[in-house]
Every structure is written in C-alpha cells, then in structure tokens.
Design a protein around this nucleic acid. Sequence first.
DNA 1: TGATATTAGTAAAACGTTTTAGTTGCGTTT
DNA 2: AAACGCAACTAAAACGTTTTACTAATATCA
Lengths: 338, 338
Amino acid sequence: MSEKALSIKDIAKKANVSITTVSFIINNKAIEKNISAAVIEKVEKIIKEDGYTPNQVARSLRTGNSKIIGLIVEDISNPFFAGVARLIEDKAYQKDYKIFYSSTENDPVKAKALIDLLKSRQVDAYIISPIAGTEKEIQGLLDEKKPVVLFDRYLPGLDASYVGVDHFKASYEATTHFLQQNKRNVALVTVDLSVEQITDRYAGYVQSIEDGPVSFRPELVLKIPFNQNKALTVDQLTQFFKAYPEIDATLFATNYLAVSGLIALKKMNRKIDKDFKVIAYDDGEVFKLHTPEISAVEQPLEEIAENIVRLIFQQLSAKGKHPVQKVILSSRLIDRSE
Amino acid sequence: MSEKALSIKDIAKKANVSITTVSFIINNKAIEKNISAAVIEKVEKIIKEDGYTPNQVARSLRTGNSKIIGLIVEDISNPFFAGVARLIEDKAYQKDYKIFYSSTENDPVKAKALIDLLKSRQVDAYIISPIAGTEKEIQGLLDEKKPVVLFDRYLPGLDASYVGVDHFKASYEATTHFLQQNKRNVALVTVDLSVEQITDRYAGYVQSIEDGPVSFRPELVLKIPFNQNKALTVDQLTQFFKAYPEIDATLFATNYLAVSGLIALKKMNRKIDKDFKVIAYDDGEVFKLHTPEISAVEQPLEEIAENIVRLIFQQLSAKGKHPVQKVILSSRLIDRSE
DNA sequence: TGATATTAGTAAAACGTTTTAGTTGCGTTT
DNA sequence: AAACGCAACTAAAACGTTTTACTAATATCA
C-alpha cells in the first residue's frame, strides 16, 4: 500500500549499478554509452517487474522541456474549439506530445495568467487563439524563440505563424450567394467584437453588397454584445426581424448567434423557405437536422488542426530559427436551401 | 531578446540577500520568518520591475504537488464532457488549481498511459470517467491515497468516491412516460457497451416494460456497436424501423444515437408526432431546435461539476484519510412532445 | 613490454525551488 | 560582564533527473 513511486535511485540500488547507468538505459543510450548487455537486461528486468515510470517533473526541470504543448482557446465547450482541440490532441499524442488546454473566456487578464502559467510549467510550444490585449505576452514568447502558432484569430502587429480561414472571402461568398438568389434585403447578425476574424466577416458582407445590385443599408446589420445572455439575444433578434420585415435573407456570423436566431424565428413563427433564407457560420449537427436544413459555412477543422500541428512540429525541430508562416484556408459553403 | 526567465537566484543576487529570504517573501512567509520590512520592500520592488514568475516545475519537484488536477474523459469533443470539463475548469481555477485534460477514446491502453502520465507529472488529484480495464491503475491511485473522484461511469469493485446520475431511474421514467401515453411498442436504441452507465439504462427500460401492460420484446432493443461509423449506424437504424413498423416510441440511450436516429427517420420520411414519440438521452441544442422539438433526458451538468469539485477539494484538504462518498443525482425528463 | 585504445562503468554538478537547522549580532537581564 | 533571548537573516540539503567528465580495467599494438 501507499508505496511512493520508485525513483531511478531505487532501481540503481536494487540492480547494484549507478544512477547514471540506469538513466542511460532508460533513455536508450545504453549501447552508445557502452553498457553491457548483461547489465541492460538486469536493469530492464527490475524496471519491468517493479514498474518504474520516470518522474517527468524532474526530467523537465533538468532538461528544460516537457513534451507538453499549451493550447489556449476562448472556450473549450464551443464545438469549433473542442473539435480542433480533439484533433490536435490526437495528432500530438502520436508524436508523444501531450496537450495542456485552457479557456480564456475572452478575458485578457485570464489569458495573460494562462500564458504565464504555461511558461512556468515549461511547456515546449504554444497554440493560441489570441485575444486583444495579450500582444505583449505573445511577443514575449516569440522573443524567447518559443514555438508559437496562432489560429482562428489573428493579432495584427505580431509576426507569428498563423493558421486561419479567409473569413472575408467566406462571408463575401455567402452574401453573394444570397444576391444570386435574388435576395435584395440581406441582413447580417454579428457580434460586437473588434477582432479581425469578426470584422472580416463584416467587411466581406459589406463588400459583397456594394458589388451587387442594391446599396448597403447599415440598419440591416445587427451587432449583438459579446457574452450577452441568450434570452436577451433572442429578444433582440426578435425585435430586429420585426423592425425590418423586408429582410429576405440573413447571414449569421457565428454558430451560437445562428442558434439564437433560429429560436427567435421559431418563436415568431417566421418560416425559413425560399422567401427567407439563412446561412450560419460554422456548421453543426443542429443545422443539418433542422427542418428545413440550414445552410452553413463550414470551417475545415481537420485541415486547420493538421496545419497547426505541422507548423508547431516544424518549429520544434527547427531549434532556434523559426520561419514565420501564415496558412489561410478556405471555408466551404454548404448549401442546404433546396 | 531571448532572456531566459529570471530565477530566484537572480533576484537574490540583485537584492543582495539570500535565496532563502527571497523564497520566504515570495511565499508570504516573510513576517512569520522575521524578514525586515525594508528587505521585503526591496525584494518586492525588484520582482515587480524585473517580472519574476516562480518555476512551477521546480516547485513541484521540491514540494511534490503541482496545483494541477488531472481530468480524464472519453472524448472532450462530446458536449456532455466538454460542458462538465468547462465547469470544472472554472471552479478549480477559482481555487487556484489548473485542469490537465485528456481523452481516452475508450481505449484502455491509452487510459492507462494517461494515468501514468498524470502521475509522472505529479498532479494533485484525479477526476476520471473510467473505462473497464483500468481498475488496477485506479486502485493504485487509491492505494497511494491520492484524491480521486470518478464520474459519469462507475467501475464496480472500486471503493472510490463517485458522482453520477441514476441512469436506471432516468431510463425507467422515460419508458414509463411512453407507456402512460399509451405507447405499446416502445423501442430502445442503445450501444454495445457493457459499462454500468449503459447497462443501467437498458435495465431501467426493461424493468419499466415488465412493470407495464405489455410484455418485453427483446427484438425491440437495438444495440449499435460502439465506434461504428455514422453512415452505417443510420443504415442500421433505418432497417430497424422498417423491420418493426409497429414501433410507436423510441428511447435513445445516447446523444449521438438520437442524432443518427433522427437522420434515419428523416430519410425514411417517418414523422415524429403523437403516433411516434422519441426521447433522447442528454439534452442539446439539436433537440431543442428540431421540428418538432425532441424530448430529452437532461443530466444536471452544473450539479455534477459542483459535486465533483466539492469532493475533490474535500479530499485535497483531508490529507490522508479520504471518506469515500457516492453522490447520485437525478436527471430530468424534459417533455417537449406537446 | 610499455604505451595506447577501448570498454564498462561511475561521481558529481546542475536544473530552481523549499525548508531545516543554523549563525550572527544586538539588547536585556542578573 | 557573562549569560541569555531574540530579530534578522543564511547555508546547505533535498526533490529526481540528465549529462559531463572522470576512472579502472582490459585489449591491442608496435
């Protein structure tokens, strides 16, 4: 009962060899370091029987690295982040790296604390969906030549590797899709955040309208405060759709806004059909199963995760010189409106 | 550029005091240890200006604890787990603990590796949604008197604290609900896993039927292989519903099976209405927004997280003697069928 | 045969902390 | 003026590794 885990010292004692020898064997340096087959076998037998696992904390302290990658997202219970996180975890695990993840809840104070925390835990690399106000901390990581990949959101002014999707284009295409279906009063429901990822969606919408047959009407853009509770959001959406009954198509800039929108429309008994179309940003089961099915802009989760991991490992092995790379992927409009 | 983080030694040198003194100050033991106000101030000033953060790895090595709680779940991208994880993270963060989480993907080998990993990282406590085949490892943690709380699933034979919901009761009630609505051919769609959590749902269903007006028909229970791909599952469900057209109500034992079921029904053009009712296990946006709305058994996420955290911290402070506690919560049937 | 290489191993420092057991100097007491 | 107590600090060990620089013994060679 309650045996403290064995240490390398215990193994060494039991095998009647030095700590060094055991360490060499554990780290597969035995042959290289001229340890005899007999000793190797003896030590390995003891390890197998007594069940030794190296203390990673001591290892980290000594070597300065941890085989851990820190992952900072806005909210791990958001399906987009959970999906990416899961895929990253999988891929990293295969290369013997673990993921240590955390949600910032869009709070720069918490985000800073998290970066500090990860640093003090000596994680080897950072994957961050950054929020404004953390530029200094991230720049600090870059200065220390730590592997860093930003994703989803981008902070201008930082010269860091990045994986994201072209939100301007996605939003432009979605809006244009509406216009081609002869929609003339296309609304945009978005969130009150000035991160690039969101402002790009706005810009894409505006540009598409301005390139189209009707002129841009700012009142058809509804900006919902970030973190506002759901009931209030639904109310606000209801008011909005009532105030502008001429709206014949709506692009929702985020997943959860689309959900709130669908709830509002359902409550109002407003049908989604050829006279009133809807596109959601970020696909999900909800939209596929909805009656009628809801069109959506799908982000390529798998591709995103793949690229993030690729860049991170590239940096991890490039020891020192980190070629900054930006990967911009395309999202896909899934048209379910027919 | 590239300055390695400051150590306590650097601070000590700069302040012209000993390492010990700095350590005392950092750990708020300065007054207790009779450090003069002047020295305290001097050191704190340097720390503020130069920005020192203690190396947690070294701390962990020395103290044997880490202020980290390990969380092992089946799949972090499953909304149930993601939700619980997020809540736990929140609550732990408030008490200055961090969460280190990982998915087992229902693979005992990976699960064992994860427990080892967490152990070797010296996490202070373990929150585990256990899978069969890991009894020995978990027992090992208990033997070492580590704080452990199991949740969601339970492994019989382990005398560990546990937080879960009464799946038998939930399932019994859901089925009885159908019977009260005069359904006489109630089907159960479940998964081919012999974990208690799932077998309880099966048992609750069977018991309810046997307590009711008609007799139990094993052919109305469909067991889908775990981890089977979605398309295949949908096919199988379609066959099932075709083979037994008399089915007038179906209880789905998991979230994702319900989603597949809804897809199958949609493809078959089988309407969900008073003549064919459905209840899903674990609520979600999908069910709320579905037309018609889908009834669901809702697990009390918040309560689950709260209890887990309560038990863990209780154990963390009970140093040594760990009163084993089992908390069984009730789920709630949300009837949306009218 | 003596010098040199090679083989097989080890002692000890270092990573950055915490903590135990001191030490030093000064003011009080007797 | 010796003894004591206390305030204010510090030296050094320890946590469990990795790694560098060694040593001792044997084998090889000219």
